[in-house]
Design a protein around this nucleic acid. Sequence first.
DNA 1: ACGTAAATAT
DNA 2: GATATTTACG
Length: 563
Amino acid sequence: MATMGGDRRQMMVNAAEDKFPEGLRVLVVDDDRVCLKVLEALLRRWKYQPTTVMDAKTALRMLMAGKQQFDLVITDVCMPDMDGFKLLELIRLEMDLPVIMLSLDCDKKVVMKGIDHGASDFMVKPVCAHELKNIWQHVQRWRNPKAIGHISDHDSDVQRVQPATADKSKYSGNKRNVGDDSNENNESTHISSTHRKPRVTWTIELHNKFLEAINQIGLDRAVPKKVLELMNVDCLSRENIASHLQKYRLYLKRVNSNPSSDAYERRNSSYNMNNKGNLMHNHEHGRWSVSSGDTSSWSTNNYGATGHVASPMNIQSNFYMGSYLHDGRMSRYVGKQPSDARRFTGFGDPPVSLYNNIPNEIMLDEFPSCNYSNSYADLMRGKLMEISKGKTPSNLQSSFANRIVGGGRSSLVPPQESYAMSTGRLPLQNEMTPFISNTTSMGGIIEQMAPFNMASNTSSVGTMLNGSSTLDASRTSMKDTHVVNSERTTSMLHNLQPDDFVPLTQLLDGGDGASIVPMQEGTLEQQPLNDQLNEINALSMDDMFSNMHMEDFTGDDAIVEEA
DNA sequence: ACGTAAATAT
DNA sequence: GATATTTACG
């Protein structure tokens, strides 16, 4: 709509050169006559060319008629016939003009509504002369988004919202001061809706890359820049890495400072018994840094605070961070899920370790598992009970397939989402795939797992079975790295949050776990169960997965990514 | 450029 | 309400 004549174009060029552009045509809409007059006067003072109207419909008519061209619209929010939002909406629909909203109400919701509707700015009355002076910048940005500041590449109008002040670095002033929403220096509240960078979701692959880099550099010498270089993933910024590193360090700190003593004991002893030397001792803290049985959520299998991993075999690995604990109890997770906190992020990812190198018991300790809290848990419990009572493997197989997997096949699994199966990560809730992942034998692991599985978890079985190489996973291209925009949906699997993991230790310790997910019928005989489970292990992933229902697979609020 | 902490988004 | 990620800032 806003076509620019040569002079006007020149005007903008001037503006870009920091010369104040004169004569921009501003349509001002406000039902309050006084306001209108004030605005008009102010705009004139700043050499704008204001046209005033008292209602939105008229404004719209004028805009649509096209007799007069406008460069910018300023509209009040509260108006009788049609409010500013509606007007904004219609303008967005019909033409290409920056719109500034005006309101007495500085309520965040109102402001956000304006922004959401695609307002270029939101000013709170009374508007001071000074800020009105700068509205030309909106016009400039609107027309030439790349000229000043960066404007996101995305489509919607919302994306174009920019702070009224030109230079981000100048106004950047404190977002930290935003807290006091009383407009200091009577300046109206600006939303200064600087565009946020698209959120990066740390997939397990990304995270593995990250770890790889850290390991190469050494934790103590790892700085964002280096890590970034090593990771060589283009959609990541140094800031992203810094953030992740910060989080990682915080995690390590937590883990190293308060591992629960019994977990520590157990781990050490098992470690000494089984470990082939792949896990690392944390010399700095004098203890094994093999994760924690405490309330921290990541587990590292081979990191020490000193930074390097002892064995190259373990470079890939992993720490697991689920937020499975908040207060050291698991009861909370046995119930229903937090619905909005299930996003699956790299740190939440279960370890993708080379299981072969990890002592069984540590695996048990370290691999918190899915808590199939509801029906699934029950089903599995039931199944396993059946097994223990002497059902044949084939029996098991079929009934398992029928009852749990169901008959239908889902073709809905987005290819790139199937990484859950390929990366070897721990399955998350409702992901049964790994349970049946491949035919790798579970060997000795099983004895220790059995009781656990009986209680609530089935996924860990698959986890350990899953033999896919982490090395492979980490070498996967980053094509599927998820940079998720706020408006975009995230993929279903990635949306699963590891909140549901239950640390094995708790169950094995006979603590709360037992009471939370009660055993149904007394004690199982261990050996037969082991045998049976080995049979389960022999099921192939394809067999099972191909039969899987998506409903079984995803959480209620999992989001299916659109093609 | 880094690390920490506040702000925001999910 | 908790976490995850981005942003501000010393």
